[in-house]
Computed example of a mutant assay.
Amino acid sequence: MKTNVYVLCGGKSVEHRVSLISASAIINSLDKKKYHVYPIYISDEGIWSNLGIVEDEIKEISELMYQSSNTVISSIETFLRSSFNEREQNIVFPALHGTNGEDGTIQGLLEILDIPYVGNGVMSSAIGIDKVVTKDLFAKHNIPQGKYTRLLQHQWKKDKLFSIERIEETIGYPAYVKPASLGSSVGINRCANREELEAAIHEAFSFEDKLVIEEEIIGREMQISVVGNEFPKASVVGEFIQERQFMDYAAKYTDGKLIQVIPAKLTEKVSELMREVAIKSFDVLNCSGLVRVDYFVTDDERFYVNEVNTMPGFTKLSMTPALWEKTDQTTYPELIEKLINLAFERYNKRKSFLYKRK
């Protein structure tokens, strides 16, 4: 009997389009002889639509989009009633990035419904998406990272001058302003002076009410993928060579102006230390399935964890699949298969626990 794989894509998130690109690649890589593959499109209003079983290759992301007249509640009810048969084996692959997909909310829903799913659980997802909470946790575990501070919207509204002066005293210029819980470089700006800082804060608060402000670290941007459950493994280190000062949304997903160098040019000692820190980060966040750990590496090979991504992109430009291909020749379809197997492993372990007293 084939396993039903429900690939969630789109979502009520600024990373809606990125999710569709990831989902199309995942859907195309799944073995249709082994799986029944169902794309589940979630509109940017949060309305769910089951697009039916896929047999052919997805060539355009528009094929994954559907305009529904349902409400959010009725659309989810329709999906649940029509999609799952207890006599069949089902699994959800949340190819969702950012809000309502990578933040623990969809994971919580699937936990309540007792449906296995790919990737990290509720706590790991919720912590991992919040850059401030992640950095606070990493600081307690001595994971190397740059200087940072947080800024809440109500603090900003109460006293803008005090907020700016505090940032200037603790971080200085240049500084990077980021929404705390968004990915794909959305809402991020580099600030060289007070005027730019104020404008960047104003823009970032249009996305959410908590920001992280970080010092600038001059260095190369590198990434490591960690895959596994109880015994995770780290990939080799990969590097992006870029034309821009930092990797914005267009550079990552639109204009292709990034060059992957795998493995990155590092001494063996530093490379191994970075892999150890990546696994430690995975363990600290209690991750399962996968995570991508992003670094800054200076010219003298000091390294700092920049952030983690608990559901990294799986587009044709994404680093995660490329890292594993260079690490142990794992192909894209094999990596997807491994993540599905890890998801069932985690689900079966959780099912073995007692939920009531004898």
Results as ranks from 00 to 15, higher is better:
22 S>V: 02
44 D>G: 09
34 K>D: 10
66 Y>R: 09
94 P>F: 08
48 W>Q: 00
92 V>D: 03
99 T>I: 02
79 F>I: 04
71 T>C: 01
81 R>H: 11
12 K>V: 08
67 Q>S: 15
43 S>D: 06
108 G>V: 09
93 F>H: 10
88 E>Q: 14
104 G>D: 03
64 L>Y: 00
36 H>E: 14
16 H>T: 02
90 N>H: 14
33 K>L: 12
25 A>W: 01
114 D>V: 02
95 A>H: 04
31 D>R: 11
40 I>E: 03
37 V>W: 01
38 Y>L: 07
57 E>Y: 09
49 S>H: 02
68 S>E: 10
12 K>W: 00
22 S>K: 01
20 L>E: 00
53 I>L: 15
106 I>C: 05
83 S>K: 09
22 S>N: 03
31 D>A: 13
35 Y>L: 07
38 Y>I: 13
38 Y>D: 08
15 E>G: 04
114 D>K: 15
43 S>C: 11
18 V>T: 04
9 C>Q: 08
63 E>S: 13
12 K>C: 11
92 V>C: 13
95 A>V: 09
29 S>M: 06
95 A>N: 12
51 L>M: 12
51 L>Y: 04
20 L>N: 06
46 G>C: 11
79 F>R: 00
22 S>C: 05
13 S>C: 05
108 G>S: 03
72 V>M: 10
64 L>D: 00
39 P>Q: 05
67 Q>H: 14
96 L>H: 07
52 G>F: 04
79 F>T: 03
112 I>E: 03
99 T>E: 13
59 K>F: 04
31 D>N: 15
13 S>R: 06
82 S>Q: 14
104 G>I: 02
83 S>V: 06
45 E>Y: 03
89 Q>Y: 07
25 A>H: 12
42 I>C: 04
84 F>R: 07
70 N>D: 15
108 G>E: 03
34 K>S: 13
33 K>Q: 15
52 G>R: 02
18 V>R: 07
69 S>A: 14
58 I>D: 02
102 E>F: 07
109 L>W: 08
39 P>Y: 07
59 K>I: 08
76 I>T: 12
103 D>A: 09
69 S>V: 12
63 E>I: 05
89 Q>A: 12
28 N>W: 07
79 F>K: 08
84 F>I: 09
40 I>F: 08
114 D>H: 09
98 G>C: 10
17 R>E: 14
33 K>F: 07
68 S>H: 10
51 L>G: 04
86 E>R: 13
53 I>W: 06
44 D>C: 13
14 V>S: 01
69 S>Q: 15
30 L>W: 02
45 E>T: 00
33 K>R: 14
44 D>I: 04
109 L>S: 08
98 G>H: 05
89 Q>E: 15
14 V>Y: 01
55 E>P: 00
18 V>M: 05
50 N>V: 09
15 E>N: 06
57 E>M: 06
91 I>W: 11
70 N>K: 01
36 H>D: 12
106 I>M: 14
20 L>Y: 02
27 I>Q: 06
110 L>G: 05
90 N>E: 08
37 V>T: 11
32 K>P: 06
95 A>T: 09
59 K>D: 09
81 R>M: 11
90 N>G: 09
83 S>Y: 06
9 C>V: 03
72 V>R: 10
58 I>L: 04
16 H>R: 10
48 W>F: 15
37 V>D: 00
